[in-house]
Structures are given as structure tokens and as C-alpha cells.
Deep mutational scan, measured.
Amino acid sequence: MEVRTIKVFTTVDNINLHTQVVDMSMTYGQQFGPTYLDGADVTKIKPHNSHEGKTFYVLPNDDTLRVEAFEYYHTTDPSFLGRYMSALNHTKKWKYPQVNGLTSIKWADNNCYLATALLTLQQIELKFNPPALQDAYYRARAGEAANFCALILAYCNKTVGELGDVRETMSYLFQHANLDSCKRVLNVVCKTCGQQQTTLKGVEAVMYMGTLSYEQFKKGVQIPCTCGKQATKYLVQQESPFVMMSAPPAQYELKHGTFTCASEYTGNYQCGHYKHITSKETLYCIDGALLTKSSEYKGPITDVFYKENSYTTTIK
């Protein structure tokens, strides 16, 4: 009895394709271990004539594949690729409408935090270190965002349907971005203890939790000093293409032309909904596939993004 075979390709990165001759009487799992086709788990399936010449994702289970996976995804987590594939199996079914010149995501599976993050990423200057993220990001900007969303979920250790947080998501993504040249110098002034300067680099240099107003941050924000008295913390120097200011959701007025974009969060910790506000020729609110415009805006804002380049204080 002759062994019926077909020729397929296996890959971990969709760049390096490895030619395989597979036995049609055995499952993919018996031949390769966990195997995925377009995100779908085909591990328990036997090869079919229609699979001839198709590319299958496999887990990096030998040295060659491990090197290829690390170079593309910059992670050695053995569960990463499987999590990416199972997320992709959902995100490829989502709709990605162009809204006001940006790629958004039609609401499904509690994905409003991903839509808000995706919209924000198209408006701030950011370059990702893992080629996987950078490639998928370019495709997302062009309207094909399924891979990018699935990668975000995998890097953030999230599953489809789980509630997510924009600030946490951005923080994970910033860790995989090139923020080497970003720098922030802060000064804390206390009447009792004097003053202390701190220099922050990388992710810490672009994120701040405690106030939404970048102007206020430049002037000074009140913080408790270690001595128990009130101290003032203010920005001395900022070198970065953008800054992200966050605070627990509270009524906040966004003035046209003073910011790049913002995240609105309605609801409580267990259950809520994100919308995205962007400042173009007027203010726009993007909620999944829905767009509304207004000249002014007041609502429960939790993150505001500002364009920056270089700032030095005039406070002496």
C-alpha cells in the first residue's frame, strides 16, 4: 500500500517557510505537534488534498525554529505562539472599519479597549522592536488589523473576551517599542525636605499616572512627601515624541487643539466601556464603527496623549 502524501510549508514567522512532505494517514499533531492554519487549530486533523502548498504555523520545537521565533517575536515564552494563534482565530472574524481616516474595530468580545489602543497607536510616533509587531502594525494602518490585535493580546497575556485596560495595554506595548531616546527629568520640591531631581528613561519617561493635564504637570502637581507634608512635583525636561497622561476616570474637559487623542471610560472596574476622542479640525468621538463630532467635550476621561518633541522648564 502506497503512502499518500502532500507537500506543505511549516513556519513560526510566515517569513521562513520549511518544506514538509506530510503523510495523509496521520494527523498534523502526530507529525508536527500543535499546528495552526489561519489561526485555526488543526492539530487533530489529517492532511487533505486542499492543504497542498498551504502554510501551517507550528510551535518552535527545534533550534532553527526557536531562533526564527525569537528573532521575529522577541520572546522565548513557549506558550506565546499558541496564544497568538488562538487569538487570531477570533480577531480574523472582527470587522476593521476605516473611521475618520483611522483603522478602528467594530465592537465584539469586549474589544473596546483594543480599538482605543489601536486608534491611539496610529496617532503617536512609535516604532516597535519585534519585527512581528512592526509588520502587523503597518498592515493594521492599511486596514488589516487582525494579526496586530492578536499579537497585542498575546504580548499582554490576554484572551479574547476578557476586559482590558488601555493604560495597561499601552504599557505592555511600550515595553516592546523603541523608547531608548526618551528621557524625563522631574523635580520634587518640599518646604521641609528641599528639592530632589529624578531622571527617568524609556517607558517611565512617557507615562504618568495622577493627572490628565500635561500643562498642569509642567506647572506642578501636589504629591505627598515622605515627611508627610505636601510637596510639588513638576516637569523639568521632556525628550520624547509623545507623552501619555493618565488618571482614574473623572469628568474632564478636553479643549480642541490642546491634545492629540484621549480615552474615555464609562462604567466601573468590573464592567465598563471605552471610547476614543481625537482632536482634528474639530473633536471626534470614535466608538467602534461609530463616529460623532463636537466642538467641545466633557466626560469621564482616563488617558490623554500629547505630541511632544523637546521641553525644558522655565521655572527657576
Rank of each mutant, 00 (worst) to 15 (best):
A150W: 00
D41Y: 07
Q123K: 06
E71K: 10
P34S: 11
Y234V: 09
D38V: 11
S294D: 11
A247S: 07
Q230G: 06
Y274G: 00
G101M: 03
K218P: 01
K44H: 14
C271Y: 11
G143K: 02
C182R: 03
L37G: 07
C112R: 03
C193M: 04
G164I: 03
S213W: 01
H273Q: 01
G82M: 15
Q20P: 07
F9T: 10
L126F: 08
L65N: 08
F174I: 01
I277D: 00
L200Y: 11
W107G: 04
A154S: 07
F259Q: 01
T64E: 15
T226I: 12
Q237Y: 14
L283N: 00
Y36W: 15
E125S: 08
Y284P: 00
K95D: 11
I45E: 14
V243F: 02
L81N: 03
V99A: 08
N14A: 14
E168W: 05
S279Q: 06
N49L: 14
L17Q: 14
H18Y: 10
S171P: 00
R184H: 02
M26T: 06
V206T: 00
Q230E: 11
P249A: 02
E281T: 07
K106T: 13
H74E: 07
Q31K: 11
E239C: 10
L151V: 05
Y84S: 04
G53K: 13
C227H: 04
Q30W: 08
H51I: 05
T103D: 03
T232G: 00
P78K: 11
T75Q: 09
E239M: 10
V12A: 08
E308Q: 07
G161A: 05
Y311W: 10
L81C: 09
D109G: 05
Q196K: 12
L102R: 07
A87P: 00
G53R: 13
D109L: 05
I223K: 02
Q270W: 04
T159Q: 15
M85H: 09
E239T: 11
Q237K: 14
K233W: 07
S240H: 01
Q237C: 11
N14V: 07
T198L: 14
T11D: 06
Q197F: 09
L37Y: 14
Y57A: 07
Q251C: 13
V206Y: 01
N178C: 10
Q123C: 09
V185M: 06
L283T: 07
L179V: 07
D41S: 12
A150I: 02
Y113T: 05
T232C: 07
K255M: 11
L186E: 14
A247V: 03
T11P: 05
R184Y: 01
G164N: 08
A140R: 01
S263G: 00
Y96H: 05
S295M: 13
V99Y: 14
A132N: 06
L119F: 01
S263A: 11
Q195N: 12
T116R: 01
P34C: 12
V203T: 10
P130M: 03
C271E: 09
K229G: 15
I105N: 07
N61H: 12
R141H: 08
D303I: 03
W94V: 01
G220C: 01
V42C: 15
K191V: 15
P241N: 07
L114F: 02
A146S: 13
T10D: 02
A69I: 09
N14K: 09
K201M: 10
D38G: 09
H176G: 02
G202V: 01
R83N: 10
G202P: 01
T169Y: 01
T19W: 11
N187G: 09
H48A: 14
H51K: 05
L37Q: 14
N100H: 12
K219C: 09
A145L: 03
S279M: 06
Q20C: 11
Q197C: 09
Y73M: 05
Y28C: 10
V188D: 05
W107T: 03
H90S: 12
C261I: 06
M244A: 01
N157E: 08
P97K: 12
L291I: 13
H18P: 07
M24E: 11
T314G: 15
K233L: 15
P34Q: 11
V185I: 12
G299N: 03
N89Y: 15
T19V: 10
F217Y: 06
G33M: 04
L163M: 11
Q238C: 01
T75E: 09
N309R: 09
T103Q: 05
W107M: 05
A289E: 15
E296C: 14
K233T: 11
K316A: 15
G39S: 14
G299H: 02
W107S: 06
L290Y: 14
D287H: 00
A142Q: 15
M170H: 05
A205I: 00
Q122K: 03
K183H: 10
A87Q: 04
G267N: 08
T292R: 10
N129S: 10
D165W: 02
V21S: 13
S295T: 12
L119Q: 03
D287T: 07
A108H: 05
L153D: 03
N129I: 08
A250V: 10
K7C: 14
S310R: 14
K229A: 13
V203W: 14
G164K: 01
Q237P: 02
C285S: 13
C182N: 02
D287K: 01
Q251N: 14
E52L: 11
G101N: 08
D180C: 06
L59H: 15
P47V: 08
E144Q: 11
K158Q: 05
I223R: 03
T120P: 05
Q222I: 10
A142R: 14
G161M: 03
T103R: 05
C193K: 07
N110H: 05
D38I: 08
Q195D: 12
T64N: 12
A177D: 00
I286E: 00
P241D: 09
H90N: 08
F128T: 03
T64W: 07
L291D: 06
G257N: 08
T91L: 05
T27G: 08
G228I: 02
S171R: 14
A247N: 06
K233H: 10
A140Q: 03
Y113K: 01
K316D: 15
I105Y: 04
Y138D: 14
K92E: 03
F174R: 02
N187W: 08
K229N: 15
V166E: 01
P97A: 09
N16Q: 08
A289H: 13
Q222F: 09
Y265Q: 02
T198G: 03
A108T: 07
C225A: 01
S240I: 01
Q196S: 13
H256E: 11
A115V: 05
G143Y: 03
D165I: 00
G272F: 00
Y311H: 11
T302S: 09
L179F: 06
F305V: 15
D77H: 06
M26V: 12
F70C: 09
M24C: 14
G267D: 14
F174H: 02
T11N: 07
C182D: 00
K106Q: 11
I45P: 06
T169H: 04
F148M: 12
N157K: 13
G288S: 02
M209T: 15
R4P: 13
Y214L: 13
Q222Y: 08
G39W: 07
F80I: 03
D63F: 08
M170D: 04
N178E: 11
